[in-house]
């Protein structure tokens, strides 16, 4: 009996000790660069398997009007406090433009009126945030393929970088939001530069006046307050080189899961 109690005490203490060590060990591993690279293998397998399973042309599920979320949640920057953006918002974005440049034959500047006259697409899709929530909205906009057709990317162009008018952080550390997608996603039928949500102009909380919709990826890829589209061969020179504001802070570039 005595021996059993001692055994049990020993086991209990060992378990507590080992768990504490393991937890501290996990946190230390978490901070080490080599281990981050090991963990990133998971992202590569996700991307590879998803592309193998469905190629690049699968269409995101579309829903009916009955499925629309009563209020479409805004997240991240929901009211940019940047002076230039505020001034544009005050005049109802009358002078907002979308610049397309970088590796293109025909750098082009689009006004909102011009974008609204171009072929449009309306789709009811589900927006999945990386945090875990989803909301269903009806988006109207110009297929990004139409915009690119006018600017004519050169043969070297491999990625589309979305530059946004909102910034994160305060004071001297203000960092503009940006994102990037590859050309297959850029030319996908459901990838649009949206100016309408649920039949109305895009609200500020959801990225007025323009935002990207790249439906098979998580919310942070859907850049809001879109002001400039840059075609690049590599995004290594942008931000911290990972291809997006959140990617520079540890999130996966491939956001299909």
């Amino acid at each position: 009996m005595e021996a059993n109690v001692n055994k049990r005490q020993f086991l209990g203490r060992t378990l507590t000790g080992v768990s504490a060590l393991a937890l501290a060990g996990c946190d230390r591993l978490n901070m080490s660069p080599w281990f981050s690279k090991v963990l990133a293998v998971g992202e590569s397998i996700n991307k590879g398997v998803h592309q193998l399973a469905g190629g690049r042309v699968s269409m995101a599920q579309e829903f009916s009007e009955a499925d629309l979320s009563p209020v479409f949640r805004g997240n991240g920057s929901i009211n940019p406090d940047d002076g230039a953006y505020r001034a544009m918002a005050a005049e109802n974005f009358a002078n907002w433009t979308l610049k397309v440049d970088g590796l293109v034959e025909q750098p082009t500047v689009f006004t909102l009126a011009q974008l609204r006259l171009m072929p449009r697409r309306t789709q009811i899709t589900r927006h999945d945030c990386v945090e875990g929530w989803s909301a269903i909205g009806k988006w109207t906009g110009v297929p990004l393929a139409q915009v690119l057709a006018l600017a004519k990317p050169t043969a070297q162009a491999r990625y589309v970088v979305l530059h946004c008018a909102d910034t994160y952080g305060t004071g001297g550390s203000k960092t503009p939001y940006y994102e990037s997608i590859d050309l297959e996603d850029a030319y996908h039928a459901q990838t649009i530069v949206a100016y309408g949500l649920n039949g109305k102009p895009l609200p500020v909380a959801n990225g007025a006046p323009l935002r990207l919709r790249v439906e098979r990826q998580l919310g942070y890829k859907h850049a809001k307050f879109l002001a400039r589209i840059e075609l690049v061969e590599s995004f290594a020179h942008l931000g911290r080189g990972k291809g997006g504001y959140w990617e520079d802070r540890g999130y996966q570039w491939y956001a299909g899961i």
Partner: peptide, 20 residues
């Protein structure tokens, strides 16, 4: 939780690696 401080980005990296 892993990590033992708030980090959605890091938790996703752990989760996907060990899921595979």
């Amino acid at each position: 939780t892993i990590p033992g401080f708030y980090s959605l980005a890091d938790a996703r990296a752990w989760h996907f690696f060990f899921a595979w």
